[in-house]
Design a protein around this nucleic acid. Structure first.
Length: 152
DNA sequence: GCCAACGTTGGC
DNA sequence: GCCAACGTTGGC
């Protein structure tokens, strides 16, 4: 089993939206490295930290779980979608998505600033310079450390 | 709002 | 195949 971190801007989709929806499909990934993680490595049962970016404050705000493994991202086929990509064909989809289930929202979000201050988390991609991936793997010990910092 | 970082595009 | 231009991400 693997552990992941997903970034989302709360004004487009927040942990509260996921809590309300209970489950969602993670569409709109249009980066090949992220796509490869989704397609090749994410498995049902993997746990995901949900992170708010461009937020006040930026923070890990909860946990969710992968409940469906990679399948074609249908928004790439839809000319009306902002994620439309004519290069993605139905018989050879370029982009994939997974389904996520809500698990918990932290009472105390773990802020980016405190993550940066924790030497145990210095190797996380989240705090590395220039990291722009919106989904990426994290270590089990990093996942557990964030949980510990949240007090959950 | 600024800007550094970095992925993608397209001309050559 | 190189690389400049451009667009996007995301912290500050």
């Amino acid at each position: 089993m693997k552990y992941w971190l997903f970034k989302s801007e709360p004004n487009s989709y927040s942990i509260d939206d996921l809590k309300k929806d209970k489950k969602t499909h993670w569409d709109g990934i249009r980066n090949y490295q992220a796509r490869n993680f989704i397609r090749d490595e994410m498995k049902k049962g993997d746990l995901v930290l949900f992170y708010h970016s461009n937020a006040e404050p930026n923070a890990v705000v909860g946990v969710c779980e992968i409940v469906k493994e990679a399948y074609p991202d249908h928004t790439a086929f839809d000319p009306d979608s902002k994620y439309y990509d004519p290069k993605s064909k139905k018989d050879n989809p370029a982009w994939m998505m997974i389904d996520l289930k809500y698990k918990k929202k932290f009472k105390n979000p773990v802020e980016l600033s405190t993550i940066k201050d924790n030497p145990k988390l210095k190797d996380m991609r989240l705090v590395q310079r220039g990291n722009r991936l919106s989904v990426f793997p994290i270590e089990k010990k990093e996942f557990n450390e964030i949980l510990k910092m949240s007090g959950e």
